[in-house]
């Protein structure tokens, strides 16, 4: 049963990716990304990472993706420049991607991954994450806040410029 659900989530993750990459309509691409991100949230939950799964839904689907779709809809006035990649570029990209994909698939199946035995019911992870954030990873947590502050200042600077430029 779990295997079946796992496979469903994998298909949910991978298949929309083709639309994201290949669709010429950017709104379709954005909506396909939504399904992909939902599939990833499902995979997180199946791996026992309940907290990350919920965060994935709230932050990526609820926040970032909605922003992307809004951004696409509000800025799409006039004609979009068609992306044109020449054939040699396409060929080179295809070969490179193929080689990387083959190497990743081979290494994923051949490598002797250390596998931990799963004991009983999955545990709630939010308490453990909270302990780590205020314990071992306290400093990275604080540094992330400095990064966000500085990025916020920079973002305000760039946004302010476009208002004044009019």
């Amino acid at each position: 049963m779990t295997d079946l659900i796992f496979n469903v989530f994998i298909l949910l993750t991978i298949i929309p990716c083709f639309w994201v990459a290949l669709s010429s309509n950017i709104v379709h691409a954005a909506f396909s990304l939504l399904i992909t991100l939902f599939g990833i949230a499902g995979l997180y939950v199946l791996l026992g990472a309940d907290f990350i799964g919920v965060i994935q839904v709230i932050v990526y689907i609820g926040g970032i993706l909605v922003l992307i779709i809004f951004g696409v809809m509000m800025t799409q006035r006039g004609k979009l420049l068609p992306l044109s990649i020449q054939l040699p570029g396409k060929l080179f990209g295809a070969v490179l991607t193929g080689v990387i994909l083959a190497a990743l698939l081979l290494s994923a199946t051949r490598t002797l991954w250390p596998v931990a035995a799963v004991l009983g019911e999955p545990q709630l992870t939010s308490a453990a994450i909270g302990d780590l954030l205020l314990g071992k990873y306290l400093i990275p947590f604080e540094i992330a806040s400095v990064l966000l502050l500085a990025a916020l200042i920079g973002a305000v600077l760039i946004a302010r410029r476009s208002v004044r430029g009019e």
């Binding site: 190497a103 990743l104 081979l106 290494s107 051949r110 490598t111 002797l112």
Partner: peptide
Amino acid sequence: PQDRLLLIV
């Protein structure tokens, strides 16, 4: 030998 490909990647 099984793990070497992963290390190269």
